[in-house]
Design a binder for these strands. Structure first.
Lengths: 168, 168
DNA sequence: GTCTATAGGACGATAGAC
DNA sequence: GTCTATCGTCCTATAGAC
């Protein structure tokens, strides 16, 4: 992967962090690098490929962020923390259609692995917990809970239901 | 509410059902009614107001669809069924920023009421179950579960965790 | 690998006549 | 309440020179 290629993905990532997926345009990426938009097409076939590059990086980051969690509640805390620190990236990575064919093999699985382990290898439990965690995060990011709602309490309630020993 | 106003919302709704939110354009709405786009602005101040009209209708529909459920698993079944029958409308209603100031008072609460009741009035339980259900639905709609995943089983696992008596 | 020029299109919204 | 005309803006992507 050439240096320019990496710079392009970096610039794309920064744009998304700052203004959401909608701020990712080929012109804006080029501006950030001090070149013209058409030049980008010497490095990437199209915009979707750039986006996929950002998603791949983000999934690796999540895998790392979750790797050291040693309990379900630590996992949940780390998951939520990543989402709140990088709301636009989280959305890009976890909403809408995923361009799987443009992603390096195994990236998606690596991000999911810590959760599968925490679920004791039970796929159904892992999927149910994933749904709960993603639901909590995305509803929070989208401002869907009532103002003043105690989300920590909702998280604890859900995690307890899934067998996490409650912390005091 | 004038007839034209209702026709506009109906047309907008149909466009979204057919092609997602992205297919909702003032031009397309006008085309469907056999008029020109600028005429719409005599009935709605802007596009967001049209969108809000569709959301309000959809929330009422959900309230009705969930009203007759008499157990948590019936509620979940009805919730998932609505989402799968109207995936684009579900997304419009439950993703991204909600234009609350353009929605009739109480609509959001009415849609949420059946779930709050099923949770025995416990806000934290209601929010956790909502997050789980929304997570399951949106991950399914977005094709995020592995192909062949047994989603019925994941639903049962989650609902059981939240205290639903398992059905056989 | 960069550039200029441009194709080719979409969109929301306004002005002003009727 | 509808129309025509149009403004202003933004976008992805290609062709071809250097």
């Amino acid at each position: 992967m050439s240096e320019r290629t990496q710079q392009i993905i970096e610039a794309a990532r920064t744009l998304i962090e700052e203004g959401g997926s909608q701020s990712l345009t080929m012109r804006a990426v080029a501006d950030r690098l001090g070149i013209r938009a058409p030049s980008l097409y010497k490095h990437f076939p199209d915009k979707l490929a750039v986006e996929a590059g950002v998603i791949a990086i983000a999934m690796d980051e999540v895998a790392v962020a979750l790797a050291t969690a040693s309990s379900l509640s630590e996992l949940a805390t780390a998951y939520r923390a990543y989402a709140i620190e990088h709301p636009h990236i989280y959305r890009l990575m976890n909403s809408g259609p995923l361009p799987r064919h443009l992603l390096p093999a195994g990236v998606e699985d690596r991000a999911a692995l810590p959760l599968v382990r925490a679920a004791g290898g039970d796929e159904n439990v892992a999927r149910a917990i994933w749904a709960f965690a993603h639901g909590m995060v995305i509803l929070e990011l989208d401002g869907r809970f009532p103002p003043g709602a105690d989300l920590d309490a909702a998280w604890r309630t859900g995690l307890a239901a899934f067998g996490d020993p409650v912390q005091h």
